[in-house]
Computed example of a mutant assay.
Amino acid sequence: MKVAIADDDPIVCSSLSTILTATGTADVIWTANDGQSALKCFQAAGGRPDVLLLDVQMPGMDGLEAAERIIAVDPAARVLFLTTFADKEYISRALALGAKGYVIKQDVASVVPALQAVMAGQTVLGAEAVANLSLGKQEEQTRKDPSKPVPRRFQTLTDREHEIVALVADGLDNQAIASRLCLSEGTVRNHISAILAKTNLANRTQLAVEWLSSQES
């Protein structure tokens, strides 16, 4: 795949380029150190990557504004945020803009699988991003009408499956869910497999994103 990187730290750009090239994951076609440069490179002839790795806080035009402008230019653009900031407002805005993922920079090992997932058409959220986003949704839910109808995608789920989906969206792994609900890990795995089949989702990350998004409306 062709990847571009926009980060205000040249060392981060260089390190990521080395990792992606050395592992045979991608060809890095350009790097930029601010949003304006990223937009200019993206609009240049031959400058559109398969995935753009984009930092949030950069001098001048930040990553969120750059993403908004880039996606306006090309609605099919795949933007994957890679940043140190797990602020729920940033995450919510990034997803609302149409970004394909939000990964925390400290988890470098997740970059390659995140790129591959985005190329496969998936939306990717790092574990810390999911946890912070779900905390925000929980705060909002305390102010919402409990009689709100269940979104269509989740209407066929049982009460137990709804519990499990909510815990997945909170960022809990199978062991933690099993402990919370007094179930075996095998039972939790079976429930999650059934939930994915009923909702036509590919993995627990997509499940968490869809559930959290459904709680906004």
Rank of each mutant, 00 (worst) to 15 (best):
Q106T: 13
I91E: 06
Q116F: 06
A94G: 15
V124Y: 12
Y90N: 15
S134M: 09
A99M: 03
Q122I: 00
G121L: 05
N132S: 10
D107W: 11
E89I: 05
E89D: 14
E139N: 08
A99P: 03
Q122K: 15
A129T: 09
A117W: 04
Y90H: 14
V111D: 08
S134A: 15
E89T: 12
Q106H: 14
N132T: 08
G101E: 03
A109V: 10
M119E: 14
A120Y: 07
N132I: 00
G101S: 04
Q122H: 13
V118Q: 09
V130W: 02
D107V: 10
S134C: 09
S110K: 13
G126V: 02
V112R: 07
A129H: 08
L135N: 08
A120W: 07
E128S: 12
V103E: 11
A99K: 03
G126M: 04
A117H: 09
V112Q: 10
Q122C: 05
Q116A: 14
M119N: 14
K137W: 09
L115S: 09
G121I: 04
G101W: 03
L95S: 01
G136T: 00
A114L: 03
L125R: 01
Q122S: 12
L133S: 02
M119T: 15
L125M: 12
K105M: 05
K100M: 11
S134Y: 07
Q106W: 10
G136F: 02
A120I: 05
Q138N: 12
A109N: 11
D107K: 12
Q138K: 15
I104Q: 10
S134F: 06
L97S: 00
V103T: 04
A99F: 06
V111M: 11
A114Y: 07
L133K: 01
L115H: 10
S110C: 02
A131Y: 14
L95Y: 01
L125Q: 01
G101Y: 03
V130N: 01
Q116E: 14
I91H: 09
K88D: 15
T123I: 13
Q138Y: 12
G101P: 02
L125G: 01
E89N: 13
V111N: 04
A94L: 05
S134K: 03
L97H: 02
S110L: 11
M119D: 14
R93L: 10
L135R: 15
A94V: 01
A114S: 15
L97R: 00
K137I: 14
G126Q: 06
L95C: 01
S92V: 00
A99I: 02
V124T: 07
Q138T: 11
V103G: 06
K105E: 10
